[in-house]
């Protein structure tokens, strides 16, 4: 009973976090509007980049231009989900080292849930939606057909990849309980996010395996796009992602619990 109450309260906190984030967006309407424009420009440059590749260099093995557009759509979606819901994960180590974690630990919800709820930035999702829809529609038109189950599974996989990346960032941040500042987590995950801008199929087998079975980068855009443009079975991807999710969840939770015992807050 207590666990259900706890989960219900956490969900309620997320819901309030979203409501307050929307209220905040209303206060910063110009910024939200400029976000649409800057994202459209950003996506435009990427489309141009791949257009140059396809027109001047030749084909990318396994990808048509339409497929690449869908890949770009997933890549944008993954980045938006990461920024909108898990933006605090990469900076979580700062709460540990500067002692601000104290104010989250004294509330009757999971401190991490409260940190995330208070830093939701739904505007990232809203500002990429037009670009993502355009990329999917354009890619669909060029590709002459889409696998809908693959598309829905792809969206779920990209969302889970964002969650796993957040767990990875949190696990790295929790090392701050033992060794202090963990700014390296920010740099490492930033490097991983850069890799989502290129299909993992163009990388070597070892790197691709690492990015598919250890780090969730393969599920950010490559696997979801491949499922959408082909008739491949969704089960191997779902199975691999489930394994990765459980693994990182367990490692993250273990590090958190052990780390709390080492927490020193800060003087005064």
């Amino acid at each position: 009973m207590r666990i259900f109450l706890y989960i219900w309260r956490t969900i309620s906190v997320f819901w309030v976090g979203i409501r307050l984030n929307v209220a905040r967006m209303a206060l910063f309407q110009t910024s939200t509007l400029l976000g649409f424009i800057s994202n459209a420009v950003h996506v435009g440059f990427f489309v141009l980049f791949w257009d140059i590749i396809f027109n001047n260099i030749g084909t990318v093995p396994g990808w048509s231009f339409g497929g690449i557009l869908i890949y770009l759509g997933f890549s944008e979606l993954f980045f938006a989900i990461t920024s909108a819901f898990f933006g605090a994960a990469t900076r979580f180590h700062a709460l540990i080292t500067n002692g601000r974690l104290d104010v989250y630990l004294i509330r009757p919800v999971d401190p991490r849930a409260l940190v995330f709820a208070m830093t939701f930035r739904i505007e990232y999702i809203i500002r990429v939606l037009p670009s993502v829809l355009f990329l999917f529609a354009y890619g669909w038109a060029l590709n002459q057909g889409l696998n809908f189950i693959g598309l829905i599974t792809g969206i779920i996989l990209a969302s889970l990849a964002a969650l796993v990346l957040a767990l990875l960032q949190l696990t790295g941040s929790y090392l701050g309980f033992w060794i202090g500042s963990m700014k390296a987590v920010e740099e490492f995950t930033q490097a991983l996010i850069v890799l989502t801008q290129y299909p993992t199929t163009i990388m070597g087998p070892w790197l691709r395996a690492i990015l598919t079975f250890v780090f969730p980068i393969g599920y950010a855009a490559t696997e979801p796009a491949l499922l959408t443009v082909s008739n491949n079975s969704i089960f191997p991807s779902v199975l691999a992602m489930s394994g990765m999710l459980v693994g990182w969840l367990a490692l993250s939770e273990l590090t958190w619990r052990k780390g709390l015992g080492q927490y020193e807050s800060y003087g005064g």
Binding site: R9, V13, A23, R24, V103, Y104, V109, L114
Partner: peptide, 22 residues
């Protein structure tokens, strides 16, 4: 150490704590 939304009215931070404390 504060835990209030700096951009939003105080009432909305209190609304969050209303939910946090059920």
């Amino acid at each position: 150490k504060t835990l209030l939304y700096s951009d939003l009215p105080l009432r909305w931070s209190l609304e969050l704590y209303r939910v946090v404390y059920g």
